[in-house]
Design a protein around this nucleic acid. Sequence first.
DNA 1: CTTTAATCGACTAATTCTATAGACTTATCT
DNA 2: AGATAAGTCTATAGAATTAGTCGATTAAAG
Lengths: 129, 129
Amino acid sequence: MISHKAKYALQALVALARAEEADEALIIADIAERQDIPRKFLEQILLDLKRHGILESRRGKNGGYALLRPANKITFGEVLRIIDGPIAPLPCLSKIAYRRCDNCASEASCEIRRVFSRVADATRGVLDT
Amino acid sequence: MISHKAKYALQALVALARAEEADEALIIADIAERQDIPRKFLEQILLDLKRHGILESRRGKNGGYALLRPANKITFGEVLRIIDGPIAPLPCLSKIAYRRCDNCASEASCEIRRVFSRVADATRGVLDT
DNA sequence: CTTTAATCGACTAATTCTATAGACTTATCT
DNA sequence: AGATAAGTCTATAGAATTAGTCGATTAAAG
């Protein structure tokens, strides 16, 4: 399961993408209300996405958030990694945060790793495009 | 990421499957030592798997754990659902614990659900076979 | 009747998740 | 210049989850 936070982030981005098409600017309060997301929580999320180069913002009157890149250049995978961390089901399969399983003698002979490697590939196939 | 607990469960089952081939009985202490799993923690896990019809056990001398079914009748998916809960990335996509996203107006028009539905299918394709 | 091994229930420490609160900064408009 | 609108930053808090640990009990075999 992805976290609520990640779901909120994706919902906000979808809303921003739609707004982009309609040449409409969106402020936090609007996104929060339309998508029914706790407002102050959403603030943190959007700020985080901005820091990671997904969004841009303007303050003050006529301010709000917008996508920094066209929607089709932003993948679900990228967003999930920012908010929830690695997508891989095992640390020893993560691209962004590889770690040996402290438990495991040999990666090469790990049956579990072998199976989850296929899961990771399939998942990335969907989320990274 | 799957939990440590789930990883331990799978490791224990792999060990039991191997032991089965060699007609060898395994006791908790052996599994714990070979796979380097905290012993008391493993106890809980194996008991849980037993309660869910994956394992059988015998107490006392010559006791230990064994698979209740042949190894190829047990899927990673089944084990994961017992230990970690639903495999689906969203509650509204879970087979075993479906729940509407409290946040969502319409499932049919949810872009996020649509994408993660493909993730769920792909994941199940690997884990449920 | 002793030893071996699984079973059961409670408890705990640390971390993560899901927020909430409030003060601060920056931009625009009149 | 001042009012207003909006994003930014830091801190805090309650609940849930994770990853165990402890100690006592029950059952089987010899």
